[in-house]
Amino acid sequence: MNNEIQSAIDALIAQASQVILGKDRVIRLAISTLLANGHLLITDKPGVGKTTLANVLARLFGLNFKRIQFTSDLLPADITGVTIFDQETAAFTFHPGPIFTQLVLADEINRATPKCQSALLEAMEERQVTIDRKTRPLPRPFFVIATRNPTEQTGTFSLPDSQLDRFMLGISLGYPDREAERNMLKNPDPRQKLSSLRPVFSSESLALAQTSVAQVTVSNKLLDYLQAIIAYTRHDPAFRSGYSPRAGMSLLEATKAWAVVHGRNHVLPEDLQTIIPYSVHHLSAREPSTKLESLILENVSIP
C-alpha cells in the first residue's frame, strides 16, 4: 500500500483526535466509511459532538460542507433546490439546494417527513438529483452524514428499513470519558481548534485512498466467514430480517476500509467482527431487546 496514503490516514486520525476527544474508534469508523464511499448514520442524543465530527471530517478531507437541519416542515425542495423564473433573463434558472455539496450533514433526519427523507434517499443511492424531470449529478465525492435522535424521543418519524439500508455504518458517539470531558471543560471552544485544522487529503489523494480500499485482498476464507454470518442472520429465528445483498456488500466494503485505516491490505476476521456491531442497523430483530451483534459474533464460528 501507498505509504503516503498511510501516513495521510495516520495524520488524519491524529488531527481529528485533537478536536474530538477520546473518540478514537468513532473517528476511525467515520474515516473508514468515507474511504469506502459510504454514508454514515449517527444515532445519538443532542450535544455529544455529532456536528463537530462532521465538520472535522469535512475540513480534514478538504470537502465542501453543508448542513441541513431536518424539521417536520422541511420540504423536499429545501434539500434539492428549486427552479425559479428569472425576470431579467426571462428564463427558468435552477437554484441548487444544500445537497449540492461534497459532504452533507443531514441533522436530525428523523424529524422530517418521509417525503423529505426519500428526497435524500435518491441522492444517497444514485448520487444524483432529479428536479423538474431533469437529472442533475451531485459533486464527487459525495457523502452523507446523517444524525438521528433515538427513536423513543417525541416528534420523530422512524426511518424506514429501506433508508437505513443505504447507510454503510451506524454509530453512536456516546458521552466522553472522564478525562476527555475534563479536557473539554478546560478548553470550551472547539471552534477555534476547528479553524486551525488544515486539510490532510486533497481530492486526488482521497481518490487514491479509495482505490487502495478497493484493492484490499479478501481471501476466500474471509468470504466464507462473511457468508456464514449473512446466512445466519437470514435463517436464525431471532432475526426478522437479515443482511440484504446490498448490506452484505457494504459491510465488506466498510471492513476493507477498516483494514486500510489500520494499515493492512488484507482483511482479517477480527476486522469483520469489529465492524459488525456498527452494521446491525441493516438487520431487524424479532425481539427489540435482542443484542444482534453479540448473537452473530457468538454463534457464527470462523471457518
Binding site: 485482498t217 479478501v218 481471501s219 476466500n220 476464507k221 474471509l222 491490505n265 488484507h266 482483511v267 482479517l268 476476521p269
Partner: peptide
C-alpha cells in the same frame, strides 16, 4: 498464518 490465509485470495 494470516499472511497465508487472509492476505491472499486462494490457497
Amino acid at each position: 498464518y494470516i499472511a497465508l490465509r487472509y492476505a491472499i485470495v486462494g490457497d
